[in-house]
């Protein structure tokens, strides 16, 4: 692995998940063995869209490789692609020039529910690494195949078996059909609104949330991560379509489970649990999936 890492390092700026003061974040790394296997605190979507960037100038980006991203986060980026790839030049360029090496989890993480969306073995990836003891199983896309010519390719049902094993350890949630079960006037939204402090964490930490705000600052026009939990998100000169916090919380779940399903035929969530972990009042998207709307 180390040799492939070195080869990649000569073509890319290399980053990895690393532990600092007890939190796993992303940083420059110099060796494969420095990369943490733990799920990072956040989905590293800033590699694709900076929290804040000037959109008046489209700089040529350097090539970056990011090791140690988890499958749930990478899957999120593939979902974002469906909406914004090829349309937003900043995202598109970075997406094309960033190699993500996702580490496949062999044990379910605390709180995660990725098995509900297929589990940690992805069928779209740049470089998918599955560690078994000292051994690495590598799946690599054509684009990056040249770094792994020497590697023996896994054949047969290895990955499928692995995936089934993993998913049987983590009971999937009944997400199928949620777009039909979920209820517009559910009490849930009001209950959540009584607790939510509009911090935006559930959007900022999510690997699938792509929304941003555009604004001018001096001679720059900046694009900054936005959150649909905020009331200004939809205020327009005609009024505000989502005045209530309950309506805005509902928008988040409806986008993930209803709207995206309708327009792109997939849910906009990967089960990474980030929005649950970072919500200061413990609002849990899993409850939105499992809630008995009919029983209300």
């Amino acid at each position: 692995m180390e040799s492939a890492f070195v080869a990649i390092s000569s073509d890319f700026q290399v980053y990895g998940a690393v532990e600092r003061d007890g939190d796993v974040i992303f940083d420059r790394v110099a060796g494969f063995d420095q990369v943490s296997e733990e799920r990072s605190r956040y989905a590293p979507k800033e590699f694709l869209m900076k929290r804040n960037e000037n959109v008046l100038i489209l700089n040529v980006e350097s090539k970056k490789a990011v090791f140690g991203i988890k499958s749930c986060d990478l899957k999120g980026f593939y979902l974002m692609d469906k909406q914004i790839f090829g349309k937003d030049p900043f995202y598109t360029q970075k997406r094309e020039k960033t190699l993500f090496a996702n580490f496949v989890c062999s044990e379910p993480c605390n709180g995660g529910f990725c098995s509900s969306f297929g589990g940690p073995v992805l069928d779209q990836y740049d470089l998918q690494i599955l560690r078994e003891g000292e051994k690495f199983h590598v799946m690599v896309s054509e684009k990056y195949d040249r770094y792994f010519r020497e590697f023996k390719k896994e054949t047969g049902t290895f990955y499928v078996d692995f995936s089934n094993r993993f998913n049987s350890k983590l009971e999937p949630l009944p997400v199928e059909g949620i777009e039909k079960r979920i209820k517009w006037n559910s009490e849930l939204w009001k209950e959540y609104a009584s607790a939510c402090i509009s911090c935006g964490a559930c959007n900022f930490e999510c690997p699938t949330c792509y929304c941003f705000d555009l604004y001018d600052d001096g001679n720059e026009r900046k694009k900054e991560w936005d959150s649909c939990i905020l009331s200004g998100f939809t205020s327009s000169s005609a009024g505000n379509i989502r005045k209530g916090l309950d309506e805005r919380l509902r928008q988040r779940f409806y986008h993930k489970f209803v709207y995206f399903k309708k327009s792109k035929d997939t849910y906009l969530c990967t089960g990474c649990n980030r929005c649950v972990e970072d919500c200061p009042v413990g609002i849990d998207i899993k409850e939105v999936i499992t809630y008995d709307y009919n029983g209300e």
């Binding site: 937003d88 649909c228 709207y259 327009s263």
Partner: peptide
């Protein structure tokens, strides 16, 4: 329809009405 619009190209997420 009038919605808050920022990007105009379907990427900023402000102007949705349902799945559109």
């Amino acid at each position: 329809l009038e919605r808050r619009m920022e990007c105009g190209i379907g990427v900023c997420g402000h102007c949705n009405i349902g799945e559109h």
